[in-house]
Simulated scan of single mutants.
Amino acid sequence: MRIAVIGAGAIGGTITALLDRAGHDVAITARGEQLTTISSSGLRISGGWGEHLARPRASAVLDATPEMAFICTKAQDAADAIAANAEWLTGIPVVIVQNGLDGVRVAEDLLPDSPIVGAIAVYAASYVHPGLIDVTAAGPTVIGIDDPTRRQIAAEVSAVLGEAMPTELVADFRGAQWSKLIVNQVNAMPAITGLSAQETLVHPVLGHIVTASMREAVRIGFATGVRFASLQGLGQTLLRAFALAPIAIGRVLPRVMASRMGDTPNPGSTLQSIRRGQPTEIDFLNGAVVRAASAAGLTAPINECLTELVHRVEKSGDFLEIEEVAAVFRRIG
């Protein structure tokens, strides 16, 4: 099948390499050194799904209509990327592989004649350097829709991608998005401190803050009618207990999440963006919780503070010391 992947970061690069290995004709859009390297030397994947050197057709924008497309940019870049490639995406299934809550809606507004399917990457991958993606933790891609009329298209997407990597098809995509939003609570603290996700989750001070932010996000989800999907060990029953239990008991969950990440330091996608000097998608992670709370007449002060601190590091380039982080959160209680 002719497949396009828009966005050549860790997730887009992984999908491209694995689809190439499965025998599909893959075109990828990329920028800068990544585009130059893929064009000249190919795209190599290593780690959880083994080694493979893919030779996709690479360009800044598409130049032909594929049979299926995957949008794998950061959430803040999605609208521009879709607009730049819109003439080649009209009328074909378009899969939005993104964090946050808004990706499918944005794509539907820009591509009203294309069936849009949502997807969530439940694996960890790092952009090591141009031309090399390392999968640090293998896992499925969750595929789903909230519009039942697109169930068959979602199943077709799952079958195609399933030839290359594990997939799971879900009926309640919003619930899956919210569960991934809780998982993505691990991203902010590494971006603020420069430490790995594992280090921040087990640290007595930083881990306590992450636990509090996760509980806040879960409570906002329940308050807005979310039914959390089962994802990476999280689900409706566990998260309800997590939100209601004393925080000392709730601390167990982030520690378990850290242990499941293994020994390879996991920087998280937000810290990877910081290290590359690129804007992060924090406004679509913790910031999404803040917006959901505001829309419901609620507040999310911990998630709001984490969002602001990540933006502070983005602007200054300087990570915060642990005591400095602790002092900030003492002020908000």
Rank of each mutant, 00 (worst) to 15 (best):
I6C: 07
I6R: 11
I6T: 09
A8C: 03
G9R: 10
G9A: 03
I11H: 04
I11D: 02
G13L: 04
T14Y: 12
D25E: 13
V26D: 00
V26K: 03
A27G: 12
T29I: 08
E33L: 14
I38Q: 05
S39A: 14
S41Q: 07
L43I: 07
R44D: 07
I45A: 01
S46L: 13
R55Q: 09
L62C: 07
C72Q: 02
T73P: 08
T73H: 11
Q76E: 14
D80M: 11
N85L: 01
A86L: 10
A86G: 07
W88V: 02
G91A: 13
V95I: 04
I96N: 02
V97D: 06
L101G: 03
V104F: 04
A107T: 05
E108R: 14
D109E: 14
D109F: 08
D113P: 07
G118E: 04
I120D: 07
A121F: 08
Y123P: 00
S126E: 15
H129P: 00
P130T: 12
P130A: 07
L132E: 14
A138W: 10
G139A: 01
T141A: 13
I145E: 10
E156H: 09
E156Y: 08
A159M: 07
M165H: 00
P166G: 01
V170H: 12
A171M: 08
N184I: 02
N184E: 13
N187F: 11
A188Y: 01
L195Q: 15
L195M: 15
L201M: 15
L201I: 10
H203Y: 02
P204R: 13
P204M: 15
V205S: 11
V205A: 12
I209C: 04
V210P: 07
V210A: 13
I220V: 14
A229Y: 09
A229T: 11
S230H: 10
Q232F: 09
G233N: 12
L234F: 01
L238K: 14
L239W: 09
R240T: 02
F242S: 01
L244R: 14
L253R: 14
L253M: 09
P254L: 00
P254R: 00
D263R: 12
L271S: 08
L271T: 10
R276A: 09
T280Q: 11
I282V: 15
F284M: 14
N286D: 06
G287L: 04
V290K: 08
V290G: 08
A300W: 05
A300H: 06
N303H: 09
S316T: 10
E321K: 14
I322W: 07
E324W: 04
A326H: 07
A327E: 08
I332Q: 02
G333D: 11
